[in-house]
Design a protein around this nucleic acid. Structure first.
Lengths: 158, 158
DNA sequence: TATTGTTATACTCTATAACTATA
DNA sequence: TATAGTTATAGAGTATAACAATA
């Protein structure tokens, strides 16, 4: 939350407003970073009381949509290093949201599943995230929104 | 660089392709995160031999566009914590790309400027980044690209 | 030989609080 | 009292390499 500038400082701060962005105006990466900062902060505060953040939520949602998925497949689908995923799954297992079972067909890999509690929490998270998404839609504009999803989906694969 | 799957493993890996994304298909945050991963990795490898990455480059470009800018103004414009900015500017000063001068009007603040070497490196970086940006434009589609910039620019402020 | 999950390590980034010098 | 820059610290994420079990 930013303070309103008072009358005395308002004049001095006007040069803040006239900041120039130079070439950054032509770089999608800059806008994407700023957008992600806002979106993640807003979504994380929405999910906090469920003991989740966007990364942990996306893991639960992926496991929900792909029961029995392996850790490498999950790693690839979410763009999280498989080494990093281990600690995240440890957490979610400790919260009793997921289970890791040895795969019967390939005993190297784990089959991931949601617990009943995991299903409940992901269901509630989906409601909360949908409300957050409405704010995003309003912010980028309802017309632009589906175009954004379509255009950015090309980065999903590698 | 990802290995091509050979004939023997290709069949096994087909279930990788059929991964389901569930609700993530409706969440801009997920696509933004994947897009940023790709864009930052590509841009960073482009800039590496100049001893820059996208964050350090964006600092130089901002200082270039706003000579004499203060550290707090820069922090706000780029969405980098002012505490974090200190170490980044230390680095760029050590590389002789920028200078910190005490402001004559407010001796609490620093006026940031590019050195001649800084100007040269930012000029070269802009060429390299422009080539990178062409890849991005091709990837999201030339029609969608300007819409992305416009729609995401709403996140620049807060 | 290659892959899955795991551990370990070093580095970077984020978030926060406190200190100083100035205003 | 408030702000700009700085320092310090804890937590989270990234990148990489190596190892055991299994294929």
């Amino acid at each position: 939350m930013r303070q309103q500038p008072n009358a005395a400082t308002a004049e001095i701060e006007t040069d803040d407003v006239s900041i120039q962005y130079g070439e950054l105006n032509n770089h999608l990466g800059y806008f994407i970073r700023r957008a992600q900062q806002w979106i993640f902060r807003d979504a994380n505060s929405t999910l906090a009381h469920l003991r989740l953040d966007v990364v942990r939520y996306s893991i639960l949602e992926m496991v929900s949509a792909n029961p029995g998925i392996s850790q490498v497949a999950l790693s690839g689908g979410l763009g999280i290093e498989r080494a990093r995923l281990v600690a995240l799954l440890d957490e979610l297992e400790k919260l009793h949201f997921i289970t890791r079972q040895r795969s019967t067909t390939d005993r190297r890999s784990h089959a991931l599943h949601l617990t009943p509690e995991g299903h409940a929490v992901v269901k509630e998270a989906n409601h909360l995230i949908a409300a957050h998404e409405e704010k995003v839609i309003e912010r980028v504009g309802p017309d632009a929104y589906p175009l954004l999803l379509a255009a950015l989906s090309t980065f999903r694969s590698g």
